[in-house]
Design a protein around this nucleic acid. Sequence first.
DNA 1: ATCCAGGCAGTCA
DNA 2: TGACTGCATGGA
Length: 299
Amino acid sequence: VISTSSTPAPHQISLTTPDYDLAMTLTSGQAFRWELHQGSWESIIGQRWVRLEQHQDCITAETAAAPDDWSWLRHYLQTQVQLQIVLDAFPPHDPHLRAAVQACHGLRLLRQDPWECLASFILSSTKQIVQIQQVIRLLSHRFGQPVQTPPDRPVAHAFPAPTTIAQLPETELRACKTGFRAAALRAAAIQVAEGSLPLHEIGLWPTEQARARLCELRGVGQKIANCVLLFAFGKPDAFPLDVWIQRALTELYFPGQKLKPVQLGQFIIDHFGPQAGYAQQYLFHYVRVRRRIGPAETI
DNA sequence: ATCCAGGCAGTCA
DNA sequence: TGACTGCATGGA
């Protein structure tokens, strides 16, 4: 429906979102393309430019072009998830996790696009979050499809499509500071573009099978596979075990001991249970903020 | 300057 | 298996 008035209806919606800390969620190291501009969070979701704000229990969203509906945004933000049900599944007598939950109240998991998530985390290995953000910005600006923005904002770019990345020579990718990760990124893009890596199907597989398929990719091991399982496929039991979490788990649960990643992995499954991925996100953000290299300093 | 970053894969014992 | 190392690049 096109309005004929001189002030077209803004493409806005307001979502009621209890137990949701938008800023914390967007800066907790699961998504890399959100930028704070004049008090609003701006990014691209799929092919859509979006601006978000939170006021109390309400998230307001604005797009540049009128969307048919807003299901894509609810899906991305996972607004239907009742956080208390997740928290109730955490181990009841864990003071460390309890402290993390208290400190990070309203921290959520997003549901991101599988290709963008896979590509982003292929690019993440031995890089700091600020650098990951920079690389993704460069790639998107140079190779992503332009998307419509409001008149007051500069043109924005979607994350580059697999077919685009697949056709680029590796030197072009390396020029975006991807470093040694360029070959793995390109190889994954080729598989997605060919159809031999049907991410949307794989996302429906049982966790173990999906993880195994992802780990067949160059440059993808347990850590990155679990990131995709958790942040894109919505598998809440997937637990990305990175250097931060290893350090945190060792310090908090096994001080002075030297556990191997495999042993830590078993402990995680036994201890944190079916919502281990959420627990991981709380612990990850908690220890990062405590070490004061969290979002306040990196943005 | 030195170490390390939301890792992974190859090598050698 | 288990420890060690190279890989790019730039922050802290």
